[in-house]
Nucleic acid binder design. Sequence first.
DNA 1: GACCTTTTAGTTTTT
DNA 2: CTAAAAGGTC
Length: 781
Amino acid sequence: MTQDYLKGLNEQQREAVLHKDGPIMIVAGAGSGKTKVLTTRIAHLMSHHRVDAFNILALTFTNKAAKEMKERIEKILGNSDARNLYVGTFHSVFARILRSEAHHLGYPNSFTIYDTDDAKSVVKTVINEMNLDDKLYKPNIVYNRISSAKNALVGPAEYAQDYYIQQEDNRSNRPAIAQIYAAYAKRCFKNGAMDFDDLLIKMYELLKHFPESLHKYQHKFKYILIDEYQDTNPAQYEIIKLLGAAYENVCVVGDDAQSIYSFRGATIQNILQFQKDYDDVKVIKLEQNYRSTKNIIHVANEVINNNKGQIPKQLWTDNTEGEKIRLVRTMSDNEEGKFVADTIQEQKLRNHYSNRDFAILYRTNAQSRAFEESLRRMGIAYTMYGGVSFYARKEIKDMVAYLRVIVNTRDEEALKRIINYPVRGIGKTTIDKLLLLANENNITMWEVLENARQAGFKAGTLEAIENFVTMIKSCQSMLQTKNAYEVAFHVGKQANIVKELFNDKTVEGLQRYENVQELLNSIKEFTETPSNDDGEVGDKSLGSYLQQITLLTDADEKDPNADTVKLMTIHAAKGLEFPVVFAAGLEEMLFPNAMSINTREELEEERRLFYVVITRAKQKLWITYANTRYKFGQLQQNEPSRFIEEIPQQYLDRSFAGGGIRNQGAGYSQGSAFDRMRGFGASEQAEKIYGPPPAKRKDTVPSYVPPKTAPKVVEHKPAADFVPSDTSNLQAGQKVEHQKFGFGTVLKMEGSAHNPVATVQFELNGEKKIMLNYAKLRIID
DNA sequence: GACCTTTTAGTTTTT
DNA sequence: CTAAAAGGTC
């Protein structure tokens, strides 16, 4: 086999690809081609070393990255062997493995995966059952505490015994968190459910306590590759250590300068520890950047140099010098939005950029609003990432809850959600009684329902319960013979959900109905798509579907190639690149965020975040900040971010930065009187002028596409001798002239003989449907 | 037990 | 400011 794929690599990249066995760590600077190295390396292992795809595990940071990686490998190999690779995120790969090994741990194989909402709800339940004050023990705080413990592989027992942890909890006056943690873990297990962190913890426990499973997966995954290694946490580290112990063919790729997930337990320690735990680690540095201009790279380097204790490396590039980084100050957050939208419009016209070339990146999701509004005003299509995901919508969660109960009746969270939705006469009093009985007898809520007759409910209540149980059971029996889609469809009908939503004729009701239809479509697509990305025989069951959707993020579903401006947090932009980037909201308290300025570590992570946003840009970078900004409806004054001062003046163009005479005419720092008077940002007014707010997203679709107004007709002067032809025998492919639209080609003929309609592609005015009974066309040939 | 009104808490980042 | 929770009424 030819090895053409090696030709496009530089020396270090090639070395990383050719290294076959033994641990290797690739320190890859931003834009240095790490994905290329990973994909080429896998392709090389497969084609040159004849490593079976089934024996390779590649862990990525998003599902989308996993999919892309497979596609790129397939392209290099020129065959479909890559389909058998095990590629995915830590969470989705482990979920898949746990699904087949769950019985060892006492979980049903169709265990539910709890998202953060579910998990917090369980925490809340537990807190209430323990009669603790939920004003003090806020579910949010408690959950985060538990999550941190889990990511550090600290179980409930260890948590309770650890002196320092207990000190912390005592100091914050919440000594009972250890007990809550224990009760929470117990409850999740009883519910047959794992939260996100459990997917790691349980995987670890499986490998740790079940030697057969350990042996099986150690020898299955002869080669392990991990992307974005700087963002792995101790739980992930230990799992990889176990999995990789047999062969030590572990390849990690990361950049300590881009570590931005410490709030999720990620630690750069994993990079340092790697070299200690594995023998003879080969270390390769990729320092040449292929993405950005010299100016951008210089600025990035200068900024990150303010952090202590970096792995020494110097990012450089052969690319052109490029333009200076532009710094812009505006009076308010709304004007910041306006400036960015205006600039995008201007750049599109002046430099022939498309919408897809732009990204607006910010620190917090709440900042998106001003940009959405101004883009909509300008009629610029955009896609917003983050925010409420499709599967987090109420109507979707309701529907999914039914499916969850059918697949796993132990799932109490789902059961509570649907037991009286739609209203069927099982109200709060009854539910409380059910829960009490379940707890007293140490059985699940579902088991109480099944035996409701013995519990002494009123006749009406008992009937309602029995009807409910019968319905769920009939759906369960359907699972034996029907596919996931048919069952879901049946549920929607049986439970009266679809009909109920259908009868709601409000705009929101209509949207909800469509969302449920969309969910059904997605289930259908799932059941009918032959092979999954998982390298195992595709599991098309409902349980498999449910587990999968919980782990989807909207980045996984949205089309990155859509011609839209992309809006997202800097965290979500990791690994992406754009020709033109707007780094927005560079203000003290916001970026660096007020929550993260208390320790040097926190501040350095904010700086790495700034480094990440700078290095997303290929050609042009704007940095914007606002003097004032609304927070909780309150006007806040903000200082410019300290990070701005870390950029050397020589790389900055401050001509738009506002302040003083240099800003004359720019208009953004003051805002026009017109804007101030009508209060730019009043969404009601914007709506009157510019149409309704963006449709609630179906995830695959851009957040906003400007309404199609009748495109302006480019006037065509008909020839002086224009005489309409007889078009009764007009055929597709013929060239015609229209008096107004000009010259064009007939694409197809439709309509009846009495009312023929031609679809014509006009050179100047695009595709039009022409009714031949009315329009006059001259046939050219 | 359902429905309406009032109050209050929240914004850091996410699998 | 806004979404969710609590509280009060029929």
